[in-house]
Structures are given as C-alpha cells and as structure tokens.
C-alpha cells in the first residue's frame, strides 16, 4: 500500500494550502481566498499533470521543506528560489521527481514573495465550501502548515505534462497597477485623485494575503464621515483613515466601510502577490471615470 502523504519538515514563515478559492459565498461573509498568484499556481499544477483546481502549497519568502512518503512529481514556481532533493540541486519551474522519503527543500525566494509547490495528485485535505484554501481572515480551511503536519495527497491523474518547463514572469521591480476609478472616487479631493494617479507608493511590510498595503502620500477626503458598510471586490483599492491605499487580495473582507477610490484590473493582481516590501507602486488610471 502506498501512503500518499506529504510530511512537513520545515513549514517556513507562512505556508498555506491554496486552490482557486471559494467564490460565490460573499453574501455569507465568506472571503474568496485562493492562490494569490493564480497563473503561477495553475502552471505548476499543469507541470505535474494536475487539473488547474488541484490544491497546492503557497510559501511566503522563505520556502519550506517537505518529505513525501511515496514517490511524487513536484513543480516549484512563482517566486524564483533554489530547489533541492536530498541536498542535490533540482530544477525550478519544471517537473522534478522526488523519491519516497526524500527531502524536498524549497529555499528562500531570490526575488518575489510567494513560491508555489504543486505535487502530483494534489493536496487533498478536507474541502470547506468546495475549496481547500486556507483563508487567513476568517480561519476557514486548513491551518497554515506546521512542522510535523502530514498532508494527504490524491492519486495522480495520469496526465503527463506536455511541457518540461514554461516561461514565468519575473517578480516586479516596479509594480504598475492599471485601475478603474470608483466606485467612491467622489469621496476624495481632486488633489487626492491627482496624487493617487501620479505619485509613486511603496509596498508596505504590513502587507499580507488580505491586502497589499502601501506607503506614500496620504489621500485627502472630500467627504467626511462614515460610509455604510458595502460589498468589496478583489482588487479594490480601499483608503482607510490614515490615507494610504490598501489593495484587497484574495482573503479580503466581503464588506467594508472605507471608501474604494479605484479597482485594480484582475490581470495585474498576480504581480501584486509577488511584490516585496519596498517595491515602488504606481497606479495608472484606465477606463472611464463614470458611466451612467
């Protein structure tokens, strides 16, 4: 009998199980969650022959060490990082065979933030509302990895990857985010809107899976007071009272009471997931200001 499981030897700073998340439950207060760098996650799944919605691991900055109990194929991508099997260097961004009991080491990111570790068969922890993703805001899904934890793996689908390696975008040296203004751009002064669109912000170290926080010139409000709580979307750029924009990522709250000055195009969010603290951020307005 093969024991298809993955033993966590070193969990790293924050390693979570992620898939495509649980959209469709926002009206119950359930965040969507899911891999922050979706294209990287999908590509790693493809490289090991998994369907795109298979659950994999998302590491944060310093990787993790894993020991599969049976032979598996893995692929590590997203943030560039050293990969080794039993101490021998192995390929990044390509399928790698890991024998039963061998130690797979995913090292610290050379650039970028989040590496994705796909394992043939996928991580098969119990799904919650149709997803195995860890949601750090509401606590749904499995807890972040801890040393000694054992993660069950599914059976490989028998689908062979048609690619040995695939190009991946480099983590951004400068994060350029195309944004559509609104829905609450009218809560800000004309000066604030100009500042938002022209000044360079920086990624704050307080960023996490809930939001990419920025540091830079504060955005002044034209309207004081509180906004009644309203629904929030992925990529919403919310401006809390300190005036520094926060870009909502996968674990964002479903409702919020701070005004959203603009919304980032979904295609630009994977790069936001890989922007290390200190990375310059520019917001580029696109789309009309208002449609009736």
């Amino acid at each position: 009998m093969t024991d298809r499981a993955l033993v966590v030897v070193r969990a790293g700073a924050l390693t979570t199980v992620q898939d495509r998340g649980r959209p469709g439950h926002a009206h119950l207060g359930v965040p969507r969650s899911g891999a922050l760098d979706g294209p990287a996650a999908a590509l790693m799944n493809r490289l090991v022959g998994n369907p795109p919605d298979a659950a994999l691991l998302e590491t944060t900055l310093d990787g993790c060490d894993l020991r599969p109990r049976s032979a598996v194929t893995v692929a590590v991508g997203g943030a560039p990082c050293p990969v080794s099997v039993n101490g021998r260097p192995a390929a990044w961004g390509a399928p790698v065979h890991v024998p039963a009991g061998a130690l797979l080491s995913v090292g610290a990111a050379v650039s970028g933030v989040r590496a994705y570790v796909a394992v043939s068969g996928g991580v098969t922890v119990e799904p919650v509302l149709g997803s195995r993703s860890t949601d750090l805001l509401s606590g749904l899904g499995p807890p972040p990895l801890a040393a000694g934890a054992v993660l069950p793996l599914g059976r490989p689908g028998g689908v062979h990857a048609r690619v040995d390696a695939a190009p991946q975008p480099s983590p951004p040296a400068e994060l350029v985010l195309r944004v559509t203004p609104g829905p609450r751009d009218d809560w800000f002064t004309a000066t604030a809107l100009r500042t938002f669109a022209t000044h360079t912000y920086r990624v704050s170290p307080a960023s996490n899976r809930i939001g990419l926080r920025t540091e830079g010139p504060a955005l002044e409000r034209a309207v004081e007071g509180e906004l009644p709580s309203e629904g929030m979307v992925l990529g919403a750029v919310q401006v809390p009272p300190d005036g520094s924009p926060v870009i909502f990522l996968a674990d964002h709250p479903t409702t919020g009471g701070y005004p959203v000055i603009a919304v980032v195009r979904p295609a630009d969010l994977p790069a936001a997931a890989q922007a290390v603290p200190g990375t310059p951020v520019r917001f580029v307005l696109s789309g009309s200001r208002r449609t009736p």
């Binding site: 959209p23 009206h27 009644p228 709580s229 309203e230 979307v233 409702t255």
Partner: peptide, 20 residues
C-alpha cells in the same frame, strides 16, 4: 452574477458579463 452581496444601502453584483 457570481456574487450578489447586499449591504446597508447597497447591493454589489460581481462577476457580471455586461455590467453596462
């Protein structure tokens, strides 16, 4: 719509094909 999210004075519709 993928999400229909009511709130205090609003309803958010997300995942629309043709919002306009």
């Amino acid at each position: 719509a993928r999400e229909i999210v009511p709130a205090a004075r609003t309803v958010l519709l997300d995942g629309l094909d043709e919002p306009a």
